[in-house]
Design a protein around this nucleic acid. Structure first.
Lengths: 287, 287
DNA sequence: CCCTGTCATACCCGGTAGGTATCACCGAGA
DNA sequence: TCTCGGTGATACCTACCGGGTATGACAGGG
């Protein structure tokens, strides 16, 4: 009566994202007519029209927008439940309640902090096994939400902590990373304005889920690519202090005076109740 | 393959809560054998054993505990999606995108603040319609989670803000509410210790989802009941300052010196993106 | 040793999810 | 204007599976 099955949600999400029944059906690996019928049934059961069938295409109604947002959260929660249950059970069978936590970290960030955290936690009396899951640019939120990870290191203001519990671990300034020979590399400090429009060094554009923001700089999706382009004198980058750990000989780091400080948090889903997680958080806040 | 249908989740939750297939089946309005089979299928598909079938009864495995917690969140998110979509659509049809927000407030609390908030918001240029939903003791969290409400007034430290976004609205001290004639009512201030074990006035025990904490005091599930019992000289209560609004003539309020301050927040699900909600929050923080 | 309460198995039936074929509609061209 | 390509909706069929009833297997308690 008012149940909203997972399958229906999946179907609707596909249609709402594609705005095209045929493509959505293909993406779902099914034929178009059953999909049309399923969406109609969903609309009837909810007593609400979700899609505006215009001539030549489909668009979302207000209710459709709502279901797109809320349904995303619901689907994430559902797949998170499945994944975490699988993990809990897989650990369960080999022998004893061998807990395992998946920790998502932005690849390459906070190396030293991560090292200290893992070492300190491993020394705890009954430490769980920690699997470190490198995540793409700002992808930790999604990983926590859909259960790929149990806990994450996040960096405000880049990551949003909305909806998670978190503890502050570290605050650091930001630096500009320049080619060693560049004139600006001789400065003791710089401002954001100084580095944001150097004619010969446009800021690189990071990939976010495969798309790039517009601008003149080179397209990047990997720290190594970026490091190389800087070393070649093609671009400049802004990073937290801890990025000094991976600088090359051809790089020069110059502190930025007016860049917002980067705050590293440890964050986890607010409803988590795991002992292993509690232990990790305790260890982290004591560092 | 890895989908975890809503129906399966519902079934498992029932069994996990009842720890008894027969009762769970009855609660679900179905027969026991199909339920057994569904749970078996679920376990097979997840590749994990969720329940320990002992002689004479059922208990949860580690994975089962995990699915109980995570599944609750997932089910709440799903019913929230359905409810909010229905609301968004119902408003959609009469005429124009007539937004409506459901605001959960603990019945009787923060009367003055609520009044000011509603008045101020109604004066806004394009204010949505606000439906005030009185909630039981500390039930606002659940209402936000399963979509019965869109936004809530919460009172730290009684409500937990975990998993929600929130803004602080007001801080107030707490008072003891005594029968007017009682000796302690003559004091200018009291401490928690003073009121926690008055021999003739045991603290009342509030109902939480139908159960009562142990203790000598009377069982209460309604502010009016409590007010009456205080007026009759049978009990004493501790409340935030703003409770003075509903005191009777037979009541006396005495400030408590060492009670933790009560902070009223406005809270909402972290993923909300509604314009109407943003307007309400803006109004609230400007009060 | 039977009786009772539990969950599992066996078997059947009906609803429905999904497939194929086709229709109805509209816009773009020739 | 007529046709053609592409859209979503309809009609109809099949097969799967969710749910029901009847019964089995097993363990404790009298």
């Amino acid at each position: 009566m008012d149940t909203l099955e997972t399958r229906e949600l999946r179907y609707f999400m596909a249609v709402a994202e594609e705005l095209h029944f045929g493509r959505a059906a293909e993406r779902l690996g099914m034929a178009q007519p059953p999909l049309s019928r399923a969406i109609q049934q969903l609309e009837r059961r909810l007593g609400v029209s979700l899609l505006e069938r215009n001539r030549r295409g489909v668009s979302l109604t207000g209710a459709g927008e709502m279901l797109l947002h809320e349904g995303r959260a619901a689907l994430d929660a559902t797949t998170a439940a499945a994944r975490r249950t699988r993990r809990a059970g897989g650990a369960d069978s080999p022998g004893g309640p061998r807990n395992r936590l998946v920790l998502a970290v932005k690849a390459g960030a906070s190396h030293e902090l991560l090292h200290k955290l893992l070492d300190a936690y491993a020394a705890e009396p009954d430490a769980a096994e920690i699997e470190v899951l490198p995540s793409g640019t700002c992808e930790q939120e999604g990983m926590l939400r859909d259960g790929r990870a149990d806990v994450a290191l996040m960096h405000a203001p880049f990551n949003s902590l909305a909806g998670f519990d978190s503890e502050e671990l570290m605050t650091e300034g930001q630096i500009a990373i320049l080619p060693a020979g560049h004139p600006l590399a001789a400065q003791r400090t710089l401002s954001l304005a100084d580095v944001s429009d150097i004619p010969d060094l446009p800021l690189a554009r990071w990939s976010r889920q495969g798309t790039y923001p517009p601008g003149p700089g080179p397209e990047i999706h990997d720290q190594t690519q970026l490091a190389q382009l800087i070393a070649l004198g093609r671009t400049v980058a802004v990073f937290p202090d801890s990025a000094r750990a991976w600088l090359w000989a051809e790089h020069t780091a110059v502190p930025l005076t007016d860049a917002p400080p980067v705050v590293t948090h440890i964050a986890w889903p607010a409803h988590s109740r795991s002992l292993a997680l509690a232990g990790l958080i305790r260890t982290a806040t004591r560092l």
